[in-house]
Nucleic acid binder design. Structure first.
Length: 429
RNA sequence: GCCGGCGUAGCUUAGUCAGGUGGAGCACCCGGCUGUUAACCGGGCGGUCACCGGUUCAAAUCCGGUCGCCGGCGCCA
């Protein structure tokens, strides 16, 4: 007999024989009966081991086996209202594959202890559901790019460019030369649009900033796209279509995962184009009406973003930030003061999930802004070549995958959107 | 980097204000129970009170310092 996934075993009828394998999730004993709840990747089922119905040795093994012991179990499915879920497995054969030692995680846990034991806490229901959801979100993202004529490309994560803005980078010795861990693949993607026109990539990105917030990871999965012949408006159209596609597909296919996590499928179904678009200037007015003291030129902090989206049900775009608040590669707008950029802020106060812009084509304008930042112009020569040989209008955007998961899964901290979070004070396990 | 909080058994904690032999629940072990749902009942095992120094007859407790973690801000996706 083949092993059955627990999900399927639970669908079998009264009296049917099944064989499952997994880990002991909970165990209760009462005299001659042992109730062992078994979990595998698909779900959990209560098994009943009764003295006399299995060999003496098997009964004793079942008695001894602690939580998280791995087991193979055969038995008969019975409907019983006393069982969680109304169905259980009456065991005829109980084999312990490996006896677990005392499992350190018990009913009361602190954040610190769970992070120290992340490798074990990944077995919890919550993280299991989040990891399944993340896998599906990535699948839907890939689905959308494929349907919209994008090529998936694989840029390098090791770079000589100390990258954008003033963001801090991790540096290391590359056979005697200084090199850095990438913060963005954007410039490499820009190079590739001249052959592939529409490209996207999924890479790890690294930020050495000492950020201590619930929405920052030191290492995160960065999804970036770059599109030839596309301006900032069309760029926003693409972003809202992609996000809406992912939300709709999650609502359709991941209902058990999201509802376990407290996110209603209807809330995600309601996410569809168009998303509200407001200019930075208008956002300033809204913030001032809400009592913030904020000057033209200031970038938004967490409280500002939260205030802009706390009452929204869909994500919003904030466009046309002041030139001095954004990176050198963003195209300067006709007004001369702002850039053709757009930040997508997730609703319910979750804040920025995407940053995008139309790219500057004037080499002079970029050099001027890079000099203001004190950057070494020589490092950008190859990038300027992209403007020298048949430049075209183009735009792109970058999305923090964990931020998307954080919002969709309604998490209270981004660390739970990734299996082994790298945080300011933690890179173990 | 700044501000705040916390650190007592494997885990979660009481005790710290007001110095005087560190208690409990969970986990684990032993025993009991033929329908448990975080099972229950009885017993047992388990402590460098984060670390270093000081005050005191006496420090988990008071004082000084160090380290670690958490939360918020700043910075950023």
């Amino acid at each position: 007999m083949e092993f059955e996934k627990i999900e399927n075993a639970l669908k079998k009828g009264e009296g049917e024989e099944v064989r499952i394998r997994g880990w002991i999730y909970r165990k209760r004993r009462t005299g001659k009966l042992i109730f062992a709840v078994i979990r595998d990747s698909s779900g959990i089922i209560q098994t009943v081991v009764e003295k006399g119905k299995v060999s003496e040795e098997e009964f004793n093994d079942a008695k001894k086996a602690l939580i998280e012991s791995s087991v193979e179990v055969e038995g008969i499915i019975h409907e019983d209202e006393r069982a969680p879920g109304g169905r259980e497995l009456h065991v005829t054969k109980f084999r312990v594959v490996s006896f677990a030692e005392d499992f350190p995680i018990t009913e009361h846990q602190s954040v610190e202890f769970l992070l120290d034991n992340r490798h074990l806490w990944l077995r919890s229901r919550k993280l299991t559901e989040v990891m399944k959801l993340k896998s599906e979100i990535l699948r839907f993202i890939r689905e959308w790019f494929h349907e919209n004529d994008f090529y998936e490309v694989t840029p390098s994560v090791i770079t000589m460019n100390a990258a954008e803005g003033g963001a801090t980078v991790f540096s290391f010795d590359y056979f005697g030369q200084p090199a850095y861990l990438s913060q963005t693949a954007q410039m490499y993607l820009e190079a590739m649009i001249f052959s592939l026109e529409r490209v996207w990539s999924l890479t790890p990105s690294f930020r050495a900033e000492k950020s201590r917030t619930r929405r920052h990871l030191i290492e995160y999965w960065h999804l970036e796209a770059e599109e030839a012949w596309v301006d900032n408006k069309k760029n926003m159209d693409l972003q809202e279509e992609m996000i809406s596609h992912v939300c709709r597909r999650v609502a359709e296919e991941c209902k058990p995962q999201i509802e376990f996590l407290g996110r209603k499928a209807e809330e995600l179904k309601a996410i569809e184009p168009p998303f509200p678009r407001i200019k930075y200037e208008r956002a300033l007015e809204i913030l001032r009406e809400k009592g913030f003291e904020i000057e033209w030129g200031d970038d938004f902090g967490v409280p500002h973003e939260r205030a802009l989206v706390e009452e929204e049900e869909k994500p919003i775009f904030v466009t046309n930030f002041p030139v001095e608040a954004k990176a050198f590669y963003m195209k300067i707008a006709p007004d001369g003061k702002t850039v053709e950029c757009a930040d997508m802020l997730a609703p319910e106060g979750y804040g920025e999930i995407i940053g995008g812009s139309e790219r500057e084509e004037s080499i002079e304008s970029m050099i001027e802004r890079l000099k203001k930042d004190g950057a070494n112009i020589e490092n950008y020569e190859w990038y300027f070549d992209l403007r020298r040989y048949g430049s075209v209008p183009h735009s792109g955007f970058g999305l923090g995958v964990e931020r998307l998961v954080y919002w969709i899964a309604k998490l209270d901290h981004i660390r739970d959107a990734t299996p082994f979070p790298r945080l300011l004070r933690r890179a173990y396990p």
